[in-house]
Simulated assay, not measured.
Amino acid sequence: MKRRSDNTTGALDEALERLHATGPERLGRLTNHAPMAVEALAARGQAGAVHRWLDLYGPKLEEFPAPVEPVTEANRAAALGDPRRAADWIAYFGRRIAEQPWRDVLAQWWPRLLPGLYGGSTHPVIRVGHAVRTLEERGATGPRLSELAHGLGYWAARHHPLTGVTVLPGTHRTAADSLDAVPPIANRADGGFPARLARVERLPAWAAAVNDPEEARRGLVELVRAATHRYATHGHGDETMLVHAATAPNAVLRALPALPRTLWAPSLHAAWTASAAITAMYAPDEPVAYAPPGTITAEEVFERAVVHGDEHVIKLTDTALDVGDERALAAALRAVELSEPLS
């Protein structure tokens, strides 16, 4: 193994190289969160913690899955949404990104994958969002391009549309009000993400008429803020799964700079559906009172998340720092309070 570097570029790239020998899932259904968490650590100035954290998380990782059959232009439609084909899809995107600029590959495949954003508990799009942030902000390296291929391949393998949902008419003007208006699914205590997703039948309309790219970007910012704020008072409905109501739309928001503007409005619509569906699946019966974070800085909140170590806490705190206000910091601290530490 290469000598570990203390700088952000070295630490992240070395971590990604370690992780690309592992699969996108474990136990046949649980997501490998390490690529997302280490990217967040590096992006927030905690490069020195990347390998220490990864050593703790390492026992959860499984070997990279065996390939089945190469994905080609002729058979890709049949392979879409087949989780057995994860290795085949990752190899396919690895080839495409080696042949074309990564932004071109992303722009071509984003509208194909967007309808299936809901598969894998939204983790594939979240992984892609982390990969795009690093490529956009810190430049392309081999491991970072490979990480995008892994994220896109995981998304294609877990591609799962949400169908049969009735859009409820309403006059809710804000994302926060619309999330408050989401009706809960039946039997919220029963089943995992796929089973609950199948019971999502009704969701409020919000931002459905938005077609302007800049308005769509502003809508995504609003949605991420609203879902993050809501975690501060509703996160106890499910301390882990409700994280994704904020981190999934934030992943979409992070991808926008690399996407054609014509894709921004469809991205907002898909992100809203994901956030609203997760709210329907896991929201508690009643909120708790809002607890202000007190005199604590954003950097101190992230340090608490790093010490805590849980991957969802780290990712929600990363999103909370994007939102950047007091209530978002309170949401991150609530995640620290509710979640089991990594040990």
Rank of each mutant, 00 (worst) to 15 (best):
G142V: 12
V38L: 11
L338V: 06
I185R: 03
E99T: 10
W89I: 01
P67H: 03
E73Q: 08
E337Q: 15
L117V: 01
P260T: 01
H160C: 13
T141N: 06
H172W: 14
E63D: 14
R85P: 02
D13C: 10
A34H: 07
N32S: 09
A79E: 06
E286H: 15
T31R: 04
L223K: 05
R217K: 15
R218E: 15
I90M: 11
R95W: 01
L338G: 05
L223A: 07
T9P: 00
H312Q: 07
Q108D: 12
Q100D: 13
V125I: 15
D88Q: 06
A276F: 01
L268N: 07
W89T: 01
G237V: 00
A78T: 11
A265Q: 07
W53C: 01
R261D: 10
G170R: 12
L19M: 12
Y92G: 00
R18N: 09
L113F: 05
G294W: 03
A276Y: 00
G151P: 12
T233S: 08
L27N: 11
A251F: 02
A328C: 10
T31H: 13
A335L: 07
A181K: 05
L27H: 11
E300V: 01
T141W: 12
H236W: 12
G139N: 01
P24H: 06
P70D: 07
L16V: 07
R218P: 06
V165G: 02
H160D: 09
R202I: 01
P341Q: 14
K60Q: 14
L19I: 09
E303A: 15
M241G: 00
L259G: 02
A320D: 10
T9G: 04
L106G: 04
L263F: 05
R85E: 01
V323M: 08
A246W: 14
L30C: 02
E63L: 14
A280N: 04
T228M: 07
T22W: 07
W102M: 04
A226I: 09
R230L: 13
A298I: 09
D55A: 15
T233I: 13
E215K: 10
E326K: 03
H130T: 14
T31I: 05
P24Y: 04
E99M: 08
H159N: 10
L338T: 06
L135G: 09
W110N: 00
D177I: 06
H308G: 05
A156K: 03
S178I: 00
L16W: 06
R112F: 06
Y92T: 00
R254G: 08
R225M: 06
A74N: 05
T9D: 13
V288H: 13
L242I: 04
E222A: 15
M241H: 10
A176E: 15
H236L: 02
A37S: 15
G58C: 11
E137Y: 03
E69V: 08
P169N: 08
S275E: 07
M36F: 09
R196P: 00
V288R: 14
T141S: 12
A277S: 13
G235D: 01
S121R: 12
L135N: 11
P35A: 01
P67F: 00
H172V: 08
G235T: 04
V167M: 08
W206T: 04
A305W: 03
A47G: 06
L263Y: 05
Q100I: 03
E73P: 02
E311A: 14
A289L: 13
L220M: 14
P266V: 00
S339G: 02
E62Q: 14
T262D: 14
